[in-house]
């Protein structure tokens, strides 16, 4: 298996492809069923945000190692409108689209590490990691 891959998000069904690849990789690395579901759900949230707010972008997957620990790193990148206040969107229930506003704070809880960078008019990058226990 290629330790690094990427899925482009253009249309709604690309979200399904993105989380399928993530689930496959997670399974192969040895994540439990629950963690596989967490990773697939996190990918679903990130990919849907790209599809909804930035129109298009991509999700990259990388298997990473740190002091004999193995993890799966996801990077969601887009060149959409960007987010003006990251701490605001990380609040439970904040939404501009009439959603639940649970996506991004949810991803943070589903995964182990979470970092978000964004610049208005330039785009958004979200990097998140799940470590194998």
């Amino acid at each position: 298996m290629n330790p690094q891959s990427c899925v482009h998000i253009h249309k709604e069904w690309d979200i399904v492809g993105a989380r399928q690849l993530g689930r496959e990789m997670a399974k192969e690395i040895g994540f439990s069923t629950v963690d596989q579901a967490r990773i697939a759900t996190a990918i679903s949230e990130l990919a849907r945000n790209i599809y909804l707010y930035a129109d298009q972008g991509k999700i990259s997957y990388e298997i990473i190692y740190n002091n004999s620990r193995t993890g799966l790193c996801l990077i969601a990148e887009d060149e959409g409108p960007g987010i003006s206040d990251i701490s605001q969107v990380m609040e439970d229930g904040f939404t501009t689209s009439g959603g639940l506003g649970a996506g991004l704070p949810g991803v943070k809880r589903l995964m182990d590490e979470f970092e978000a960078y964004s610049e208005i008019g330039k785009g958004t990058t979200i990097k998140t990691v799940k470590w194998l226990r």
Binding site: T33, A37, R38, E45, A102, G103, P105, G106
Partner: peptide, 13 residues
């Protein structure tokens, strides 16, 4: 399913 129950809780729903 159990794993779905967990992810729903993690999402804070």
């Amino acid at each position: 399913r159990p794993e779905i129950a967990q992810t729903i809780v993690n999402l804070g729903i």
